[in-house]
């Protein structure tokens, strides 16, 4: 049957059940069925990195997995990472350094950055660039993104607590 099937999964900490057509990708499911439009689709073939989400704690392309495959899994999107303040220091550093322009790649870049720094506390610039090898950004030229991630690595290593970001005045 190609008809929608009920799936239950955890998204940003909330367990929910929805009907999804088997052919609907996780990215489309998040965007269309849940209104989580922070996950962007830029190529729909796993090349641009705009649709990265955390699936059971590791970044994957939302466009390269069908929502039905994610049944039973735990998904975190940029909205969840943002609202839990897990990436507040990254957001702050990106803002200060202007490490984004149009912002379309930014959610995927933040997911990569968060995962990289969880695995490696003080990555070199080359390691940061390597981690970003699947995140396409047409606006910045990447250097500001590398700078911002490097800054956060330094701040986290120095034990600086991440203060909340979004509630501060712009």
């Amino acid at each position: 049957m190609t008809a929608p099937v009920a799936i239950t999964l955890s998204v940003n900490g909330e367990t929910l059940t929805r009907a999804a057509e088997p052919r609907e990708t996780l990215a489309d499911f998040l965007r269309r069925d849940l209104g989580l439009t922070g996950t962007h689709t830029g190529c729909e073939m796993g090349v641009c990195g705009a649709c990265l989400v955390m699936l059971d704690g590791a970044p994957v392309h939302g466009c390269l997995i069908f929502a039905v495959q994610a049944a039973g899994a735990s998904v975190q999107t940029v909205e969840g990472l943002s609202e839990s303040a897990m990436i507040a220091d990254l957001q702050r550093a990106f803002h200060e350094r202007n490490a984004l322009q149009c912002g379309f790649c930014t959610p995927g870049v933040l997911v990569t950055a968060q995962w990289l720094l969880a695995r490696k506390a003080a990555p070199s610039r080359e390691e940061i660039r390597d981690a970003l090898s699947g995140n396409y950004c047409r606006c910045t030229g990447y250097e500001a993104i590398v700078d911002a991630i490097e800054t956060v690595a330094r701040r986290r290593s120095a034990g600086e607590a991440a203060s909340r970001f979004l509630e501060e005045p712009a």
Binding site: P59, V60, H61, D130, A131
Partner: peptide, 12 residues
């Protein structure tokens, strides 16, 4: 392994 595509592809 590190030469296979990109990190998110390797995770999946």
């Amino acid at each position: 392994a590190p030469h296979v595509a990109h990190p998110a592809i390797r995770n999946r």
